[in-house]
Each structure stands twice: as C-alpha cells, then as structure tokens.
C-alpha cells in the first residue's frame, strides 16, 4: 500500500550534520541571499546550494516532482514579472534602461494604444531572479529528503520550541501513515458504493462538494480517535512539566563550523550591503553589447 513517507537514509556527509545546525544554516543563508541582486554574489550562494544538493546524493526519481514544481513556478513568476507586468522591485530596472524590443499596437475599434517595451536590464534582472530563486529553492528542497522524521521533535525542542509544540511534530508523523491508510480504506468503501470521483457533473459548487464523501469520514474518524489519544497521553503524564527526549542530539565540531560559517556569511552580507553599499542590481556591460551588435 502507498504511504506518503519518503524518508530513507542516504548515508551521506550531509546527513551527518546535526539537524539543528542544518536548519540554522538554511535560514541564515536564505536571509543572506535575500539581500543580493548582484549576480556575482548570488552565484556564490548558488554554488553552495548546489554543492549541498549534490552531496546529498538524491536520485532523480526522488526529486523529479520537486524540480518540475520549482521550474514551473519560477518560469511563471519570471515570465509574468519580466514580460507582462514589465517590472521588478529594483528601481534601476523599472525606470529607464536600454530598450531591446519595442512593440506598439492599437486595439481595433476601441482605439487603445498598447506600448510594450523590453529593456536589457529587465532581461538580465529576470536571469538574476532565476539564479536567486534556484539558490533558495534547491537549498530547501534537500531538507525533507535528508532528515530523519524521528528527529523532528527533539530537533525543534533543542532549538528552543516548547516541548508541547515540539511534540505536535512527532505526533503528526505518527498519524500520517494511519491517516493515509484510513484515506485509502474510505476511498475503497465509497467506490464500493458506486462513487466515482472522476465523473463530475454540475457546477463549481457540486464539483468541490464531490470530495465530501472522502474527507468527512476520514476527518471525523480522526477527531474521534484524537479524544482517545489525548486520554492515553494524559494517562502517561504528558504535559506535567519538564520533558526528556531520549533521542539526543549532540553538536560536533563540524556542526559548530557550519553554524559559524553561516553566521559569518550573514554578517558579511550586512556589512557589504549596508556598509559598503554593494550587492545591488548589476548588469555586465557585455550583455548590453550583445544587443548593440544585433542592431
């Protein structure tokens, strides 16, 4: 039977790091990336992200869905941003620039004039955007595949989250295979009553309503068993005070190194950005030259 748990250990260098160190690393790196629109800096992060990705030894089969999703999302955003709404968040890109393509048209009958202009800056901005987004998404894409779900509770508790909240994480993982099985059973039970999800009649309302026979039994059943689970936890002294986690995480020297490294990157970013005023949008001259040659 299909169960949606994808974790299997890959025994790679990446998985030897303490999960807390990796979360801290990922968040600090993301914060740093967001400061840059200069592709020269972004390529540095792009390189780090993809180093992590390749060190994780993920197979194409595992990540295919993720990449498809990321590529569709990025291309949609970049396309809309660059071509249709023709702007970015950076002043240098929105105002002025060097036109590479201009298209003027008049809508027949109505007489509206359409002016569409694409500048070299906007094209380069779009390219920078792709690099930046790939750096961020590929960094986070790796996490779920390389972190043992049984460590989540102790990880978040070790990062200062209250024990109760951290335990919700562990408990959620405990319920997933059970609920997935329940979902399959309900699906079969309704099919046995002639229910066919793909045969949709009627308007929007009835189309959406069509999932009710699936989600209501699964949800209500889960709520009823929740009452029992809460009793079972109370009976074993949950939430009576401080809590031990028998799964123990220990930082090693390389975890410290990773955290210090990411801390340094963030601090340097702040200096570069605010102190030196570097890292803003930058376009190489040769790129502009390309279009001059065409003309």
């Amino acid at each position: 039977m299909l169960v949606p748990l994808t974790f299997r250990p890959h025994h790679t260098i990446i998985e030897r790091f303490d999960p807390r160190a990796r979360w801290i690393f990922s968040f600090l790196m993301m914060t740093a990336i967001v400061y840059y629109w200069d592709i020269r800096f972004l390529l540095f992060f792009f390189f780090i992200s993809f180093t992590q990705y390749f060190l994780a030894h993920l197979t194409w089969k595992e990540t295919r869905r993720g990449w498809t999703f990321i590529i569709i999302l990025i291309s949609m955003m970049v396309l809309i941003n660059t071509i249709i709404t023709s702007a970015g968040t950076i002043g240098a890109v929105t105002q002025g620039g060097h036109d590479v393509f201009i298209w003027n048209a008049t809508v027949p009958w109505v007489g509206w004039n359409i002016h569409f202009g694409l500048t070299a800056e906007r094209l380069w901005f779009g390219f920078t955007q792709i690099v930046r987004l790939l750096a961020i998404t590929s960094m986070f894409l790796v996490l779920p595949f390389t972190m043992d779900p049984r460590l989540y509770g102790s990880t978040f508790s070790g990062m200062g989250l209250p024990a109760r909240l951290a335990y919700s994480f562990d408990l959620a993982f405990r319920f997933i295979p059970t609920l997935a099985r329940d979902f399959n059973v309900t699906m079969d039970a309704q099919k046995a009553r002639g229910y066919e999800m793909d045969k949709v009649k009627g308007g929007l309302f009835s189309q959406v309503k069509k999932v009710a026979p699936l989600i209501i039994p699964v949800t209500m059943n889960a709520i009823l068993s929740g009452e029992d689970i809460a009793d079972a936890m109370d009976l074993r002294c949950f939430d009576t005070g401080k809590r031990t986690w028998i799964i123990k995480l220990t930082y090693r020297w390389y975890d410290y190194a990773l955290m210090i490294f990411s801390g340094c990157v963030l601090i340097s970013t702040l200096i570069i950005n605010h102190g030196l005023n570097l890292g803003n949008f930058w376009m190489p001259d040769w790129f502009l030259g390309l279009f001059h040659n065409i003309k």
Binding site: P149, R150, D170, L171, F173, R174, T178, S225, D228, I229, D231, A232, M233, R236, C237, F238, D239, T240, G241, K242, R243, T244, W245, I246, I247, K248
Partner: peptide, 29 residues
C-alpha cells in the same frame, strides 16, 4: 491499556513509544 492499541500509541517508533511515560516524568536519558 485502552481498548484499541491503535488509539493508544503516540509515537512512530517502538523505542520512543515505550519511553513516553518516563520522558514525560523527565527522568534522565
């Protein structure tokens, strides 16, 4: 022991399931 063990088990792994009560009482690991 509740009627349905499915509704009593709170952990994904046997070891942490068995440890649950003592973890909550904050005994040292």
């Amino acid at each position: 022991l509740l009627q349905d063990p499915e509704r009593q088990i709170v952990s994904s792994y046997v070891q942490t399931e068995v440890a649950f009560a003592l973890e909550n009482q904050s005994l040292p690991r």
